[in-house]
Design a protein around this nucleic acid. Structure first.
Lengths: 232, 232
DNA sequence: ATTGAATTGTGTAAAATTAACACAATTATT
DNA sequence: AATAATTGTGTTAATTTTACACAATTCAAT
């Protein structure tokens, strides 16, 4: 069975930073732990990589259990591997962040895990090295979202340009110029005008767009500097 | 000892894609395996994460054993985790790429590992999923080198602008405009004129520069689009 | 119905950057 | 001294970005 006899086998966890957006603020899906260790404290959603389970399958399993969603956008960030990072037993953590549409996820799945959406800005202290993980995930999200059109993953299927702008303002925690933002976004040709307008607006109704999924893949790498430094 | 009793412990390997540059071509440091499994075939340099060893320590250990160098620049790419990726036993591979000055590394260390510098363009078929790892590493190197000043890691301490240009041409496998390249590089203010010139030139001797290490860290993230698409 | 406040969509000119070039200077060789 | 190869620097047009202004839409309050 163990054919590389002299090496150590190690417990491998996956920890997920799940980002959401409620229209105003960037949110994190966090677990109020009702199990040991560290029961009662806050942590990221995670799980162990199982025998006979591909790594990617495990990530999707964990995201599904938490959100009820399949085909969630996620990205590996880093493996945390300090010997003593988990006081119970040495555990590697392969760390991911995921972007989901906060309104599409299954509330029941979240409840079953004792999970809550928490404002990124008011996040509680987390167990182990999970604070570092969130810091890194935010950094990575900011990096990636400036270079690639991944923000859409956090929005409903149909969205307005002002909504999209609010999202980017939340990600970078800084105001963007409305006119320049609009021009830059539209110049990507990734948005399709649905012909509809948002209904719940109290002032001028904005055009609802959807993502051009055919172009999305081919343009994923074509839009470095989606948000430029000078735009911030 | 095993306090999370129901989970599986897994063998964890680290595999390194070591890039070098000989002045003309991008090179890979590859192992001609004189051990089982797959003896006689080519592979990446790797090793197992050991008990009581931090992940970062393990990476540095593996790089040191291979090159004789400490403080090597490396970057984690991805964890490969298909159940059957290693036919001997299930093994996760945490995959890194490293950039080293090919002339600073210790030949004896490489020889002891049966390692050779191979032109990236003529690389042999590698074992397991190592081909995929190299493909991904090259992609990642191209991505990062376009956004951050990491190319220097592949050059000697003192280098000329034409040398640096040849490096970038090797990385992107495409010619760059000499005059625009020079201007862009110098405008970063990351290069210090050493006052010396390279001696082994058969024509006009070029100015030797060195990296401004004080500015390097602070400007690491300030130079997104170090190499622009339009420059290629 | 009219006005006002908030928000959305589009336009424009100056500034900055990039792309596409040309030319002069340096070095070893002939 | 002339030649060939390479290096350093400059210049202009095109493009992109920045910093703005103005008109149109909507609902609510008069």
């Amino acid at each position: 069975m163990n054919k590389y006899p002299h090496s150590t086998r190690i417990l491998v966890a996956l920890d997920c930073i799940v980002f959401g957006f409620d229209g105003e603020e960037l949110k994190l899906l966090l677990i109020k732990r009702n199990f040991e260790p560290e029961q009662g404290k806050w942590s990221l959603m995670g799980g162990f990589l199982e025998e006979e389970e591909d790594l990617e399958v495990a990530t999707n399993r964990i995201l599904y259990d938490l959100t009820g969603l399949k085909d969630v956008y996620f990205e590996e960030i880093k493996t945390f591997g300090k010997v003593d990072r988990d006081p119970v037993e040495r555990t590697l953590s392969i760390c991911f962040f995921a972007l989901i549409n906060i309104y599409a996820h299954n509330q029941d799945s979240a409840k079953a895990q004792n999970a809550y959406w928490i404002d990124l800005k008011n996040r509680p202290n987390l167990i182990f090295d999970h604070n570092q993980m969130v810091d890194l995930a935010l950094e990575e999200l900011r990096y990636k979202a400036a270079l690639h059109p991944i923000g859409f993953e956090l929005l409903p299927e149909k969205f307005t340009i002002p909504q999209l702008q609010k999202l980017y303002e939340a990600i970078y925690d800084s105001p963007l110029d409305r006119r320049n933002f609009s021009r830059k976004i539209l110049s990507t040709n990734l948005l399709i005008d649905t012909g509809e307008k948002n209904q719940n607006a109290t002032t001028k109704k904005a055009i609802l767009y959807k993502l051009d999924k055919d172009k999305y893949q081919s343009k994923f790498n074509a839009f470095h500097y989606f948000i430029s430094d000078s735009m911030r």
